[in-house]
Amino acid sequence: MREQTFIIADSDCTNRNSLARAVSEFGYVIPVDTLEELGDRWPDNAWLIVADEGGQLREALACLNRSGQFYPIVAYSAKPQTARVVDVLNAGCAGYLEWDGDAQELRHRLEAIRVRGEQRASRTVSQVRAQQRLEQLTKREFEVLESVCEGRSNKEVATVLGISPRTVEIHRANVFNKLGVRNIAAAVRLSVEAQLGSGSLWGSQREMAL
């Protein structure tokens, strides 16, 4: 495994230091009690390893969202339940590490997680950026965008939403401005990038159910 920066977040200093010592054999480690300790000193291209105990994973995700940081996330605990691992991975984490203090398999496990994560990295980053742009829209603007992406004319959108065609034009112009696009084709491409059809973008788009 090539040199990599790892942030290890765990309020249990014994577990945190034990894992940090093992990981430091093949990477640069930043051990913290919580991510709030980083302040504005967020490293570039880091991996985040977070203890999946007592809500620490949820708190870490919330801190990342507030700070606008996006790292591959690996959750860990000593004896995770299968159902919990599935939930965490489905929520978007790059991997789940079973850590009981044995460093022998750690390098291999993290390398496997890293390789899988890098294979998805470019797609994930572009998707997140597209989602961030869409999150700037108001609910009405989002509805206009959805209708436009479905091929409806301004008049048809107005009928569906119960507003005037002129109001649709205003919302459409605002959508283009916020998304940084100049035409419908570009808006559609960005919407597809963010998986607009998944129905998960409006509201707490990046809120993981953990």
Rank of each mutant, 00 (worst) to 15 (best):
L89Q: 09
F70S: 14
A51S: 14
V86H: 02
D102E: 08
A130V: 02
L61T: 07
L57C: 10
H108A: 15
V128Q: 11
C63H: 07
E59K: 13
A91M: 05
S153W: 01
S147K: 05
N65Y: 05
V128R: 14
Q131L: 07
E169T: 15
E141L: 04
L64V: 10
V181N: 00
V125N: 01
C93D: 06
G92Y: 04
A62Q: 13
E146K: 13
N174H: 14
R129N: 14
R129F: 01
A173P: 03
E59T: 12
C63W: 02
S126V: 12
Q119K: 12
A112G: 09
Q69M: 09
C63M: 11
T124C: 00
V188T: 15
H108I: 14
E150K: 15
S122A: 12
E111W: 11
E150F: 04
A60G: 14
S126D: 11
G151N: 14
E193H: 05
Q136I: 01
A112Y: 11
R66K: 10
N174S: 14
G55A: 08
V192I: 11
G55I: 09
H108W: 06
S153E: 03
Y76I: 05
I73E: 05
G151Y: 03
Y96T: 03
Y71C: 03
V157Y: 01
R172S: 06
R133A: 08
I73F: 04
E150A: 15
L145P: 02
F176I: 05
V157E: 03
L161C: 05
I184T: 15
G54E: 12
L190F: 01
K139P: 01
R66I: 10
V160M: 06
L106M: 08
Y76C: 03
S77E: 12
P165S: 08
V88Y: 08
Q81V: 01
L145M: 12
T124H: 04
R84T: 12
A121G: 04
A51P: 01
T159K: 09
A173N: 14
F176Q: 09
A60Y: 07
G95C: 06
Y71F: 14
R66N: 06
L57F: 02
S126R: 14
A60T: 13
R114E: 10
L190H: 00
R107Y: 00
E118S: 04
R189C: 04
Q131P: 01
L89E: 08
S67W: 06
V115F: 11
R116M: 06
C93E: 05
R109L: 04
V175T: 13
A194H: 00
L48S: 08
L190K: 03
R182A: 04
Y96E: 03
K79F: 09
F176R: 15
Q56V: 00
F142D: 00
E169L: 07
R66G: 05
N90E: 10
S67R: 15
T124V: 12
V86I: 14
S122H: 10
E98A: 10
R66T: 12
R84C: 02
E105C: 11
V50K: 02
I49R: 00
V128H: 08
R140V: 13
R189T: 09
L64C: 13
E146L: 12
P165N: 06
V157F: 00
L97R: 05
Q69T: 10
E150D: 14
I49M: 09
G180D: 12
V125H: 06
V86Q: 09
Y96A: 03
